[in-house]
Design a protein around this nucleic acid. Structure first.
Lengths: 242, 242
DNA sequence: ATCAAAAACTTGTTATAACAAGTAGATAAG
DNA sequence: CTTATCTACTTGTTATAACAAGTTTTTGAT
């Protein structure tokens, strides 16, 4: 036999077929899959194999499990962060579904900034402090992301109350801190234990990271932070003019 | 007992502690973890528990498994796509590691475009065809992503040979197809079976998707496509001027 | 009819066991 | 010395079993 077709494991075949059934509409978004017991009967395999097949689907983001309740087909709907608009960060809902987006202040305090942040924000070596704000991003009241932002001390002090209730950039613009430039990196990570508990997602769930620094005139940095949001709930829209 | 502390499962405790050991330097990037047999002895648990603990680490992208060889601590190094540069897509290597980036043409053929693409590229209803190019993105000769791009038929026909060997945008600019605007969405998905085999990654591995449409003057679309790349190997740099 | 307890579900955790399959080093044949 | 084979490793797959822990339904007492 020339072509040594490595025979596919059972769990993969099953998860692929269930995936097809989801696509074909046997299982609709939001609906419950048959229980493990029923799937065992249907596919005539052991529980460990069915559980592995389900795990395959979970990893692909097709289904979600809930202990005691069952396995449910994921309903997808994403919120788009628009980065290129006049300001930035104007939230816009995508597709048909209407999603309410809100934020919630977790903490707001003066801290000694990590060395990278000291460098980025050009803090004085004598007093390398900045305000660190932790925010929770909510979609339909449900946690969908966290935001950690370091704010120059003189700004954070004055605008504390407003910053605790609004998005950062609009508040800055309202108080005549003109944002000249935003340098950002968008990347992808996996949820660690802390984030998985915060956002109620399984360990390793894909996350989008928006790590940014906002500068005012003369390349003076104002704020630096990162927004970590659920990869299945958010995306970024970028419009580049040349 | 007021606080019903749900006791953490064994596998979670073990994976968290191994993660600490990785951070503390007991296991260095690229090094092999002890084998399952050894870890079973060390932690005095069953194989299923150790395997689950390792699976936790895999899902967080901290280690990679190789059948027959062992489990190895991941070496992280990312390639940055710079989106804001004069043209676009100039590749820049991040951090210390030097990574060679190249591309490889998989296929280049005239096809009937899907309806969404027909709309986006404003193809004529009589002849809704476009060139579809499939490319493989390689980092150090290793597949790191795939790119599917639909190209206007008149452009694809003329520039076929060049497009097969170079990045799309520079080729267009070289032939006086000025790119006026690029509208893009960056999002996150999980590898399905096809992509996991293409890119040699486990099912569900996080992927970055860059879905873009390039327009020339008068908002005339030229190309539309999506770049799907490994979330652990790539990131996007965005610079916004206001 | 109401409410609480019990039972019957669901998925989650963990152990033991056996074999498959990929890799690398030791061993034996040429 | 070279090459092929065997052996001892490694991780991967699958089965059976028992219990834990959430959720829903049923039951039964009030």
């Amino acid at each position: 036999m020339a072509r040594s077709q490595k025979q596919a494991p059972l769990h993969l075949g099953i998860s692929e077929q269930i995936q097809q059934q989801i696509i074909n509409g046997r299982y609709l978004p939001g609906n419950k899959l048959p229980s493990e017991r029923e799937l065992i009967k249907e596919w005539q395999v052991s529980r460990i194999t069915i559980r592995r097949a389900i795990a395959n689907l979970v990893q692909q983001g097709l289904v979600t499990t809930h202990q005691g309740k069952g396995v449910f087909v994921t309903e997808k709907c994403k919120v788009t962060y628009t980065l290129s608009n006049p300001l930035t960060f104007l939230e816009d809902n995508l597709a048909d579904k209407k999603i309410e987006l809100s934020m919630q202040n977790i903490s707001f305090e003066l801290v000694t900034a990590p060395t990278e942040v000291q460098t980025i924000l050009q803090l004085s070596a004598q007093n390398p402090t900045a305000y660190l704000q932790k925010k929770l991003l909510l979609t339909d009241k449900v946690p969908g992301g966290v935001d950690l932002t370091y704010i120059l001390p003189e700004i954070g002090q004055k605008l504390a109350t407003e910053l605790k209730q609004n998005m950062t950039f609009p508040v800055l613009e309202r108080h005549n801190w003109h944002i000249d430039r935003v340098a950002a990196i968008i990347e992808c990570t996996n949820a660690n234990l802390e984030l998985s508990e915060y956002l109620d997602i399984p360990l390793g769930h894909p996350l989008l990271v928006y790590r940014h620094t906002a500068y005012t005139t003369n390349n003076r940095p104002l704020v630096h932070g990162e927004t970590i949001s659920r990869g299945d709930r958010f995306c970024y829209s970028v419009d580049q003019l040349h």
